[in-house]
């Protein structure tokens, strides 16, 4: 429950920060942004969550900086290919890189030698709340899950991934026997859940919301400190006294050791772009605004360190 409080305090802080930033941009703009153009490398394919996020906020950032911002997709290897490209370029702050918790888990599971510390965080834009879902005649409520006597088949995206770690945290706290079934493609997982071959899945609300509205899946547990306003009937992990696992968030960074003033200008531009109507509409449409998620560079950096340690604790307990 203390986590809840700190979060409240942090959001107020973030709000102040945003306000300060929008004042700050006037002076930041007076100082010319040193790059002719900005390239934003997204390590995931077109149409995915990170890609749509980048493309909806980029116009606002471009307006704030006064230089064009081009989004480039470089998918592959859980965005490690893109990270290598970014780190291979000059650390001048002219190349942006999308980050998600995958940068933390990739390092922990040994997929790459690169560390999230090689990057300078600029800003976290939003949190995409994760939930556990059942479907059809299967598990209808979280009580059904906790009273299950046989192995619950839980689907998630990727093996030794962010999803698997989250599922591990939740199911261990719930004390239910389970088997984790990894998927590469979330659509296959959704089909298996709706088809009754899986009992439970973990996924983010931005993806699942249309299926919830269509009545195809039922949210059973929100992985948040307290109940979400949008889903008043769904219990939250926090109120059941479970460890609330880290959420999926999306943010932006640059190659490490970039000039501080450039990073500050980028941060200001991003915080300003996050306030534009085009971007807030995008967040609303995808339900990315259920939880206040905007963080400036300093807060985001300390969050990365905290979450990295949290993941490390789970992976090492195995």
């Amino acid at each position: 429950m203390t986590g809840d409080e700190t979060l409240q305090r942090k959001t107020t802080f973030a709000a102040i920060l945003i306000a300060a930033a929008s004042f700050g941009t006037a002076s930041a703009q007076a100082q010319e942004f040193p790059c002719d153009s900005v390239e934003w490398i997204v390590g995931w394919g077109a149409g995915g969550g990170s890609d749509t996020f980048a493309r909806s906020i980029a116009p606002g950032v471009s307006d704030a900086l006064g230089v064009p911002v081009t989004v480039i997709n470089m998918p592959g290897a859980s965005s490690i290919v893109a990270m290598e490209e970014v780190l291979g370029r000059d650390a001048d702050g002219c190349t942006l890189f999308s980050i998600t918790p995958d940068q933390l888990t990739n390092e922990l599971t040994g997929l790459t030698e690169l560390s999230y510390r090689d990057l300078d965080a600029v800003m976290r834009a939003h949190v995409d709340i994760g939930m556990m879902y059942g479907a059809g005649d299967g598990l209808q409520s979280w009580d059904d899950v906790t009273s299950a006597s046989e192995d619950v088949l839980v689907g998630g995206t990727g093996a030794a991934s962010f999803d698997e770690i989250v599922v591990q945290i939740v199911m261990d706290d719930a004390g239910v026997p389970y088997r984790y079934i990894p998927y590469e493609n979330a659509s296959d997982m959704h089909a298996d859940l709706i088809g009754g071959r899986l009992h439970l899945i973990y996924d983010e609300v931005s993806v699942m919301n249309p299926m919830i509205e269509a009545g195809q899946v039922t949210p059973l547990l929100a992985l948040a400190d307290e109940r979400l306003e949008a889903f008043p009937d769904v219990p939250a992990a926090g109120e059941l006294d479970y460890t609330v696992p880290p959420s999926l968030w999306r943010g932006v960074s640059v190659a490490g050791d970039a000039p501080e003033d450039v990073v500050a200008m980028l941060e200001a531009a991003f915080l300003k772009a996050a306030e534009t109507e085009a971007y807030t509409e995008f967040e609303e449409g995808r339900m990315l605004n259920l939880y206040p998620g905007t963080l400036g560079a300093a807060d985001f950096t300390s969050l990365l360190d905290r979450e990295f340690e949290a993941y490390r604790a789970v992976t090492e307990s195995k």
Partner: peptide, 25 residues
């Protein structure tokens, strides 16, 4: 709402950009 191929998976992205979720809904 389940893409049957790589291309339709990308097509799905086109729906989502316009805030449309393909499927029965």
């Amino acid at each position: 709402g389940i893409p049957g191929s790589g291309t339709t998976a990308v097509m799905m992205g086109a729906f989502l950009i316009h805030n449309l979720q393909p499927g029965p809904f």
